[in-house]
Design a protein around this nucleic acid. Sequence first.
DNA 1: TAAATAGTGTCTCTAAGACAGTATGGA
DNA 2: TCCATACTGTCTTAGAGACACTATTTA
Lengths: 229, 229
Amino acid sequence: MAGHEIIKKPLFTVDSVLFTVHEDTLKVLMVKRAQQPFQGAWGLPGGFIDIDLDQNTDMTARRKLADKTGFTPNYLEQLQVISGPDRDPRGFSVTLAYFALVAHQSVASHIDSVEMACWIPVSKLKELTTAFDHRQIIELSRQRLKQKTLYSLLPVFCLPQKFTIGQLMAVIETIIEKPLQRKSLMRRIEASEMFEISNEKISSGGRLAQLYSLKLDANIVNFERNLSI
Amino acid sequence: MAGHEIIKKPLFTVDSVLFTVHEDTLKVLMVKRAQQPFQGAWGLPGGFIDIDLDQNTDMTARRKLADKTGFTPNYLEQLQVISGPDRDPRGFSVTLAYFALVAHQSVASHIDSVEMACWIPVSKLKELTTAFDHRQIIELSRQRLKQKTLYSLLPVFCLPQKFTIGQLMAVIETIIEKPLQRKSLMRRIEASEMFEISNEKISSGGRLAQLYSLKLDANIVNFERNLSI
DNA sequence: TAAATAGTGTCTCTAAGACAGTATGGA
DNA sequence: TCCATACTGTCTTAGAGACACTATTTA
């Protein structure tokens, strides 16, 4: 109020929780920390905003993810800001966490060559040494992904450009940890008008499966009802 | 990556969009700016985090709101971070916007004595000179409030501790800009188990109306379906 | 007793769940 | 021909919308 006090500035970082689903397992991209603090522990990919390179924080998140994976995610949204005096030993810190999705195959090849970035199954996280409060941030993010999956088709962003209903169903079931009626999914796909029926079908052990793809101009649709818990 | 470059830090602020409903109108708390930039324009209450006073950004939002209104809001949640090089003439800035609700009567008396804080009807905003991108932030916030009102009973936080179904119905109708069936609201109130039936009733021009209040331990319930748009 | 607001009973409507039945590929 | 997976038809179910009906207060 009084005008020109000096106010100490907190550290501000941008971190991303990048999910994918592979082999019926929800995985998150983690990076082995090369520096202090938490050197050697696993942490979320992220870093400081660079006001010469980034037009906004979304760009920071994308840039840092591209550094680690060579790709930009299929989907990116803000999760939330976490802040406090004790979460970073260097002092009061403010982290903007993002939540992102990508198809496993998009980054798999590139990632294997980068020793320090790794897909970790979410269920294995508790066995690892993780940096800061990143485990809680991932848990928050997982809840958000689950919730959104109940009223949208967000999990398509974990699949390649062309995909089958069966693949989408499997990814959704992995995320919500419940079985899903194929019929319910097909009704939503039709009602959303977000997808195109490709002229190809692929083999999958039985009758050929229709391939679908996101329309170019598609916006993600939110349904009026949740899938039942 | 390389280690110790000097990175210019962006300005980081916390602003709040505090809503209330009064006389069937959605209003937002605005403050006349005493200093540059945008001196004399209307802006959102907010300011810099003070790491000696605030345990986290929620506290910053509450503290700044208390400065203006003398009260802490009934409900507060993060909206989102907005950032960019051009939104503040002083340079690259990052703002964490909060979204908050309060009963009009809680702050009305105090506010009238503070010349510089004022409830502005959301519909009148375009006639005012507003600071930064605060008009867009308010619009975003309004959309979030509307959306949440479709699947929760959040608008109770715009009412006094004891309230009637009719009052809640009126507030909801103001927010969603649609009529609502009293029956639908009563079903939700019952199903949520969030409320207690008071032993008082109040007069309202006809039959006495039952007073309800939030249970002490009540968590806000999210319903499986939206009210219909 | 009329007007006004509170509250109930009950039918319709919509979209999800369940599940049996059909279709079509590969071994 | 059998099995596996893809897809469809259709009944059930849960909860919102509509709206007429009853209840209780003040003027």
